[in-house]
């Protein structure tokens, strides 16, 4: 294997990450397939559109927070993550958890009709109109569509999620070398699996090229939250989940 990592070790890393991913996904692949064509009716979409802005924001903050709790559990099960110092565990999760949620979201996205699973059924972008941040919503939908186009397997989604999370690009890491070693192994494992699964030699490069978009989406989310908070400070302070505030405020 590359850089003195044996194939056996890469395989062990891959198996651990895939298992961690499957154990901590909110929905199984089968559940998602069953739901894929259950879409919100016109009336249901109208109902979302008619909600006050702060109510829909709160609803989305709750959903995101719920998804993040699963990502924390995913991180904890990755071999090596809990061996990092506590500062770095918190830092990686704080800066990467929303990115992983967005990667995972492509599992619950139907690219054939551009709908996403929200509140039990699939619905299009118009469902989020009342949030008042069309740019962010359409950028998130574009991202999901572009990731779906790569036709990743569940194993590749798992390894890519881990690679996004365990990243040396985060500032203020106390043990960047330790993080780097873990990240390199994850990338080798991802590369190995993608070479096996994809005819397209550039598949991995295409996947990696989505990372800057992920980080731009998270920046945009923070900006939209700040703008919303200026108008509805009491909604954020009183009604938003404490974990959401801790991570993004």
């Amino acid at each position: 294997g590359p850089n003195n990592v044996s194939m056996g070790e890469l395989d062990r890393i891959a198996q651990n990450i895939i298992k961690s991913h499957l154990e901590t996904c909110q929905y199984t692949t089968e559940e998602l397939q069953q739901l894929a064509w259950q879409t919100h009716s016109y009336e249901e979409v109208k109902m979302f559109q008619g909600k006050p802005r702060d109510v829909l924001w709160q609803q989305c903050a709750i959903q995101i927070t719920h998804a993040i709790q699963y990502v924390v559990e995913f991180a904890k099960r990755i071999s090596g993550f809990m061996e990092l110092c506590q500062n770095d565990q918190i830092l990686l999760l704080k800066s990467g958890c929303l990115e992983v949620v967005l990667v995972r979201m492509c599992r619950a996205f139907n690219p054939l009709n551009n709908t996403v699973l929200f509140e039990g059924k699939y619905g299009g972008m118009q469902m989020f109109k009342a949030l008042g941040c069309d740019d962010l919503v359409s950028a998130v939908f574009d991202f999901a569509k572009s990731l779906c186009a790569l036709q990743l397997t569940e194993e590749e989604i798992a390894l890519f999620s881990a690679a996004v999370l365990i990243s040396t690009d985060r500032p203020w890491l106390m043990e960047p070398r330790k993080v780097q070693k873990l990240q390199e192994k994850i990338y080798f494992a991802l590369q190995h699996i993608m070479q096996k699964n994809h005819m397209d030699e550039d598949a991995l490069a295409k996947l990696i090229s989505r990372i800057p978009t992920l980080s731009a989406l998270c920046t945009l989310h923070t900006e939209e939250l700040q703008a919303f908070q200026q108008l509805h400070p009491e909604t954020v302070n009183v009604l938003f989940p404490p974990l959401y505030k801790e991570l993004f405020n």
């Binding site: 924390v72 559990e73 506590q86 918190i90 704080k94 801790e246």
Partner: peptide, 16 residues
């Protein structure tokens, strides 16, 4: 650490 009380707590909880 105080700033990330909940995250800290989630990391401490044993994996079920």
């Amino acid at each position: 650490k105080e700033k990330h009380k909940i995250l800290h707590q989630l990391l401490q909880n044993s994996t079920s």
